[in-house]
């Protein structure tokens, strides 16, 4: 076969392969939301994080603003310390409220940020003071059953 035809086909092959890799990275994977912009770290303490995992998303008003980077247990307070990295483009007031939400009834858990009204913004490595733990489904069901049982019988 002619050298130029050969080169052409190999070129097509390599470009197609690389395009597939890029597609896997951008469209299938999360590279498009990965390290594209600078981030800053904040942390928060939760009584119970439920099923939250590292790399879980952090959303504000439904928009992805960052990811959970690390979850550890504080050995003095026995609270879960969640470190998150937030996109530098998004700044939040100091009194922002962080709560652990669930996507759908049984879906993945994520952290939702509800901005407060403070004029000062969260500093890098700052702490989100106001948090709400995850709702644990078993506890909810348990509460519901107890409250039913405590109702006076008709």
């Amino acid at each position: 076969m002619e050298r130029t035809t050969l080169d052409l086909w190999v070129g097509i092959f390599v470009v197609a392969g690389i395009a597939a890799l890029v597609m896997l990275a951008m469209k299938v994977g999360n590279l498009s939301t990965y390290n594209v912009s600078e981030t800053y770290q904040v942390h928060a303490y939760f009584d119970n994080i439920g099923g939250l995992k590292p790399k879980a998303s952090i959303k504000s008003a439904g928009v992805l603003v960052g990811r959970v980077t690390e979850i550890t247990l504080d050995s003095t307070t026995y609270k879960a310390k969640v470190t998150m990295s937030l996109d530098k483009r998004y700044q939040f007031p100091k009194d922002t409220f962080a709560n652990i939400n669930t996507a759908g009834l049984l879906g993945e858990q994520y952290i939702g940020l509800n901005p407060g009204g403070d004029t000062e913004n969260l500093a890098p490595n700052g702490e989100i003071k106001r948090t709400q733990s995850a709702m644990v489904l078993e506890d909810l069901i348990g509460k519901f059953i107890y409250s039913k049982a405590e109702e006076p019988a008709k």
Partner: peptide, 15 residues
């Protein structure tokens, strides 16, 4: 060289 490219193509086509 060609194996990773082929595997990426396979996955992309599969998705």
């Amino acid at each position: 060289i060609s194996m990773p490219l082929l595997a990426a193509l396979f996955s992309a086509m599969g998705v």
